[in-house]
Amino acid sequence: MDLFIAIFQGIIVASTPLVLAAVGELVVEKSGVLNLGVEGMMIIGAVTSFIVTYETGSHFLGLIAAVISAGLIASLFGLLTQYLLSNQVATGLALTLFGLGLASLIGQTYSGISLNAFPVFDVYLLTEIPIIGSLLFNFDYLIYLSIIIVVSVYYFLNKTKLGLVLTAIGDSHDSAHSLGYSVKMVRSLAIIFGGSCAGLGGAYLSLVQTPMWVENMTAGRGWIALAIVVFAVWRPLWVLVGAYIFGGITIIQLHVQAVGVNIGAQYMSMMPYLVTIIVLVFISMNKNRLAVNAPNCLNKLFTSDL
């Protein structure tokens, strides 16, 4: 039972950065923009939150720093793609390269230092409940925040006017524009929101998962977050399912190795990537499912006045 609880907690902790980054990217893609810079925004969030937390001793300020810094470099992406009409794929790649480089540069003197553990959400009696207490009420508050963000995004996209406008812009920017909605403004806001979420995901890595700064510590999670959005077929609640499955594969693969199953470590580590490919293929095979939720204008240039 203890092993089960340990695996369960491990999965939740491994998945939360993916949940945060993926739900942010989902909103961006719903508005019709493909931002491939998730990895770069995550690592910027990871390094700034670490530095600010280390210098001020406040985890909260660290999180704020992650949200602001990642939102800022996301707005650079927004400026280029929305107002200078640059190619989204190339700009996203530039964001990733730039973010990884800049993070290593500013984190240079901080590498190897570790932080105090992140405070656990500790409601006295709830945590004491056997099994369920450890399964549900023994986490840091960011995990609960990530779930709240997912549910809010679901509510926002489906039940609020602005959410429906955003979806409409993603489906047909020309019609939305003729109705008088500001396509560029809504998309820019979505991009900044996506960046802030990715930044929080990065902060989770450097403040909670392994409370230290390591160069390139995102290790491809930004790309997996992009795959999770497709896996979820652009439905917010499915982002949770997708992220927990991917986190699960990572953790279970570690435990299988620990038990001593005799497959090379490298082949086990391939699992999350191979599963991502298989899932992507299966989802794209089923065209009807994709068609309902996929934003029609994804990665298409919007040029008003042209």
Binding site: G40, L76, L80, L84, S86, N87, A90, T91, L93, A94, L95, T96, L97, F98, G99, L100, G101, L102, A103, S104, L105, Q108, E215
Partner: peptide
Amino acid sequence: PNAITGVFQGVLLFSLL
């Protein structure tokens, strides 16, 4: 740090676009 190469390359691609 060696990362300065990555920063320059990223900025170069940004400016190019």
